[in-house]
Design a protein around this nucleic acid. Structure first.
Lengths: 339, 339
DNA sequence: AATTTTTGATTAATCGATTAACCTATTTTC
DNA sequence: GAAAATAGGTTAATCGATTAATCAAAAATT
């Protein structure tokens, strides 16, 4: 790598001190601190030498890195990928650099990442927390490190968060299944204690209970670590009940995709035999010859709000804890139903 | 944010100079520079105060940021998402931080990103270049900025690259279609001048020519900016030829997904009416009741090699330009065919 | 003509960490 | 017992940029 051009280089070539160069290049010579001719000379030389300021040195001096850390649970998931993209775009627009880390849903990785990012002087974090990460978040709170949770949260902790209303959208979407005439509606969800997932389940189950259709025998749980096997078993179980089920609610995207796959494998016609409700958009749905109804999270909006919340905290514009809830939409066939 | 603990803080609390603290914390007191008792005191205090070194300050001093920039063309694409994940994981393992940027296939964005990353003192770049970005790459070459191209390259430029053998795998995969008995094999590709895409086309066409099956009338091009409309038209054209086509080669993942979708929409049975060949793995393929043959790129290996090549350059272990070609595999039903 | 103001720049400290060079007791060596 | 070696630190410069404080010369004011 060629030696980089620093303020000093320019100063030396023009024959002034580096302070002068700094003033000109930062346009802080408002009170006529530098003559126009000199300013032009410096600007020209900077352009000629292709000067790019050293963000790190500047950050060190002014005590601000203008960097935020993004801790994602599973970047190979399209939902998180899109979330990361929008967070990055929006943060960059606001003048911040984003360093992304991936926990792979591993608590230990989350701890490592926090330290890693902290050492890189991030001014704040946007986090999709892994299960049981409350203690790590508490440490961040004690440190007064600004952070925002997205997509997932722990309701018992006093933290900033951006979420969709998982209960509400699940309730409403289940009502849609009922409206379509489903009488025996099952559910497949993860066996884990993420609040957002259990809220989805609760929303679905409450809708069923209120309609007098709730049946605990057709609520299936699958393990994250044995996902494929458990899905196979779950769909198999559900499909072999005496009274055939005619509706199915999937609480996450991965469960939705795999659920549809297993249904197709079992020769169940998703149009006629059963109605389903999925979470999150996916290419896979568009490949099918029929439309699959799914709940769409407003990813871009969530990303922007998360960045805004974080920057407000960093720049001390915040007034206490904020928990944003953003509406999701049910995409069913051609028509979008908003809630 | 709480005031961070610096070397000085520790030095002050223990009652020594910060030089001593630095020596102890970096284990550079090998020649008995610091007494064991003092070292223990410092270590204990560092642990007590939860000291985390300021990577930026260290980078400034030693002249190395240990950061690399990753410029991705379209992070919402699963292939690039996976590539980014693996690059990041492997780079971190090697002690480097990765800052990711997304060009959205826009040349102007690529220029902005390069400057942005350069200002952040990246020591090198891994790039999936956009079309017509040769001049920007030439500037990097002139600057002697270490960089590696992945997935795409410009054969006329003297650059390091990690690629699959697009020509070879396309040739072989087309032979498979022919072996299955296809007589009229069409192709859908992007109308753009990326070398890797045109190599895929060339591979397919050469296989057809050598088999005496080449027909330029059923080679369709679609525009990136009018993708969906063009795909609709392309498939429609192909399907309305007098002599029905019985094989179809898609040169990218997005074309594959959309192609399959359009075929299904047009009520064409992919098992019986037509044989297809797709590029890159996708969830969508697994949702279908039949297996879709596709070409799988060894993403993880490509990622690792790219990181290795780059680090070799950064740490001056390189010996000139290297162009790595990694074998891809054809995944056809249950059996994987390696080339 | 003496004083004040303005113009146009420089000096020097600082951010946090590193490291070559230096210093002072204490211990070894002959 | 004097010189040399060693142990156990400290000083100070440095990376690149910022900025308060300062300064010298020219211009304006009285």
């Amino acid at each position: 790598m060629q030696k980089r051009v620093s303020l000093k280089t320019i100063a030396h070539e023009v024959g002034v001190s580096s302070a002068t160069v700094s003033l000109v290049l930062n346009a802080k010579d408002k009170n006529g601190r530098v003559s126009k001719e000199m300013a032009k000379k410096i600007l020209d030389k900077a352009a000629e030498l292709n000067y790019v300021p050293n963000t790190l040195a500047k950050g060190l001096k002014v005590g601000r890195s203008r960097t935020i850390g993004l801790i994602i649970a599973d970047i190979s998931n399209l939902f998180f990928g899109a979330l990361a993209l929008h967070i990055q775009n929006y943060a960059e627009e606001k003048g911040y650099t984003v360093i992304i880390g991936n926990t792979n849903e591993q608590l230990s990785e989350m701890e490592k990442l926090i330290n890693f990012l902290y050492a890189r002087q991030v001014e704040g974090l946007i986090i999709t927390p892994t299960e049981k990460s409350q203690n790590q978040l508490k440490r961040l709170i004690n440190n007064k490190t600004p952070f925002v949770l997205v997509d997932r949260t722990f309701p018992e902790l006093p933290v900033n968060s951006v979420m969709i209303d998982n209960y509400e959208i699940s309730y409403q979407s289940t009502l849609q299944l009922i409206k379509k005439g489903c009488k025996r509606i099952g559910l497949v969800t993860y066996k884990q204690d993420h609040y957002h997932i259990s809220e989805r389940r609760r929303g679905c189950e409450d809708a069923l209970k209120h309609a007098g259709l709730y049946n605990p025998d057709i609520m299936e749980e699958v393990r994250y670590d044995f996902f494929k096997d458990d899905m196979k078993r779950a769909i198999c179980n559900l499909m072999s009940t005496k009274e055939k089920i005619d509706g199915l609610f999937f609480t996450t995207n991965s469960i939705s995709i795999n659920g549809v796959k297993e249904l197709i494998k079992n020769n169940i016609n998703i149009q006629t035999d059963i109605q389903i409700m999925c979470f999150d958009e996916n290419d896979a749905f568009y490949i099918l010859p029929y439309t699959v109804p799914f709940i769409r999270q407003p990813i871009k909006e969530m990303a922007q709000k998360a960045v805004e919340l974080l920057i407000d905290q960093i720049e001390m514009k915040n007034e206490g804890i904020r928990n944003l809830v953003i509406g999701a939409e049910l995409v069913s066939g051609e028509n979008v139903i908003y809630f």
